[in-house]
Simulated scan of single mutants.
Amino acid sequence: MLSTIGAAIALFVATNIDDIFVLLGFFADRKFRASQVIIGQYLGVAALVAVSVLASLISLVVAPEYVGLLGLLPILIGLKRLYNLWKGEADDETDVPAAAGLGNILAVAAVTVANGGDNIGIYTPAFATSTSAEITIMVVVFAIMVAIWLAFSHWLVNHPSLGAPIRRYGHIAVPFVLIAIGILVLHEQNSLSLLQNLN
């Protein structure tokens, strides 16, 4: 159970570091109430998790070694981010104009989903190689981590000078974490042997 919790925390952090910057923008915008940002973020993350769980159901009919090949996705995402860093390019961000009430909530949710393609690519193999009990634990951990992310982002908005080092260096660590997660998935499901047999 502790290993599942640890893995869930690592998965969430690796896929949501960039989301802190999105949350900072919403919390700093006076057109958005904190409650709208919170609800919108939870809706967005819930949508990403739901899609990932559905995608992981292929594990019911496919051998674990082949499911483990999904570990190539976080590796590719990590390599793409490394390439972007090398080229000096930033990840694309989606800007959604602020609207009132429900529109604000949907705007936050939409940005969360648009910014979460890597979440699906990484959560899917993790869910596909986990039991239903482990998936439940991961989802609960994700819900708790969203609350922590929201609280931390809100705190940073009130202390903008503390956010500067994170903006400067946080994006550099993410690609390496993603690549490590992908390699771990390939190793745990013995999928590396399939890749070796291709040679």
Score class of each variant (00 low, 15 high):
residue 3 S to P: 04
residue 3 S to A: 14
residue 6 G to M: 15
residue 9 I to Y: 08
residue 12 F to C: 04
residue 21 F to P: 02
residue 24 L to N: 13
residue 28 A to F: 11
residue 29 D to W: 00
residue 30 R to E: 15
residue 32 F to D: 02
residue 36 Q to M: 11
residue 40 G to N: 06
residue 41 Q to A: 14
residue 43 L to V: 14
residue 43 L to S: 07
residue 46 A to S: 11
residue 47 A to P: 07
residue 51 V to F: 13
residue 51 V to Q: 03
residue 55 A to W: 14
residue 58 I to L: 09
residue 59 S to P: 06
residue 62 V to L: 15
residue 64 P to I: 05
residue 65 E to K: 04
residue 69 L to N: 01
residue 72 L to F: 03
residue 78 G to N: 03
residue 78 G to Q: 01
residue 79 L to S: 09
residue 79 L to H: 10
residue 81 R to C: 00
residue 84 N to P: 00
residue 85 L to E: 10
residue 87 K to D: 13
residue 95 D to Q: 13
residue 97 P to Q: 09
residue 99 A to H: 06
residue 101 G to C: 04
residue 104 N to I: 04
residue 108 V to T: 02
residue 111 V to P: 05
residue 114 A to N: 08
residue 115 N to R: 09
residue 116 G to D: 02
residue 118 D to E: 08
residue 124 T to I: 08
residue 130 S to A: 00
residue 130 S to Y: 00
residue 133 A to M: 02
residue 134 E to A: 09
residue 145 M to D: 01
residue 147 A to R: 11
residue 149 W to Q: 11
residue 159 H to M: 02
residue 162 L to C: 00
residue 171 H to I: 12
residue 177 V to D: 05
residue 178 L to N: 02
residue 179 I to W: 11
residue 182 G to W: 08
residue 187 H to F: 10
residue 188 E to K: 09
residue 191 S to W: 03
residue 193 S to L: 15
residue 194 L to R: 07
